[in-house]
């Protein structure tokens, strides 16, 4: 089963995603797949806040900033495990922006989706958190626009695959695609 959870910055999507994952995974092993590359004070604070939030909720943390299909090798029994992947916006950025340059939008979309498929097929449940970066009405430079388009395409493909899609608004979950 696959679930997508989407929300903006400071929407409460992470907190909801953790509660949701706890609820659906019952006694199964839960993994938190952290995709953020940590830069600077802001980044460290964010990691700290999220770690505190997860404390005592029974997640094992896997850090994997690119090639997320490799995370499967670090899971004992995938078919009895749940992964909470946070966050697709970071993963897409990491797959696109390299020290050596920027990868084309199409390649990023393809890589991310094929990796997601590997996880989805092997796991009992995959929960993907993604970010709504699409509503500030700003026209950015070409490389940022390519990123926005890539993330938009990824999100659409993910929600198409997903059994459930939840949007989180001011901490309130709104079901926008309901499982059977």
């Amino acid at each position: 089963m696959m679930t997508v959870i989407i929300g903006g910055s400071g929407s409460g999507k992470s907190s909801f995603a953790e509660e949701y994952t706890q609820r659906i995974s019952n006694n199964m092993q839960k993994y938190y797949l952290a995709t953020m590359q940590v830069f600077g004070e802001d980044g460290r604070k964010k990691v700290e806040r999220h770690r505190n939030m997860r404390n005592g909720k029974g997640f094992a943390t896997i850090e994997q900033t690119v090639s997320i299909k490799d995370a499967i090798d670090r899971i004992k029994v995938p078919s009895e495990s749940t992964i909470l992947l946070e966050c697709m916006s970071n993963l897409a950025a990491n797959e696109m922006f390299w020290e050596t340059g920027q990868k084309p939008e199409d390649d990023v979309v393809e890589t991310v989706l094929s990796d997601i498929n590997v996880l989805r097929e092997k796991l009992a449940h995959l929960v993907v958190v993604t970010n709504n970066v699409f509503e500030d009405g700003i026209i950015y430079d070409e490389s940022t626009m390519a990123y926005i388009c890539a993330l938009g395409r990824i999100n659409r493909a993910l929600t198409n695959m997903a059994d459930e899609v939840v949007e989180v608004v001011v901490g309130i979950p709104i079901m926008i695609k309901k499982g059977n």
Binding site: G7, G8, S9, G10, S11, G12, D42, N132, V133, F134, E135, D136, G137, I138, Y140, T144, I148, V169, V170, G171, I172
Partner: peptide, 30 residues
């Protein structure tokens, strides 16, 4: 207004504004 639905700004004040507004709205919604 909902202010968090965009690209995370480079400017530190803009980031703080969006984060804190979001967190305040979550508490108010509760």
């Amino acid at each position: 207004d909902e202010v968090g639905n965009g690209i995370v700004p480079l400017d530190a004040f803009e980031r703080e504004y969006r984060e804190r507004t979001g967190r305040i709205l979550i508490e108010l919604a509760k």
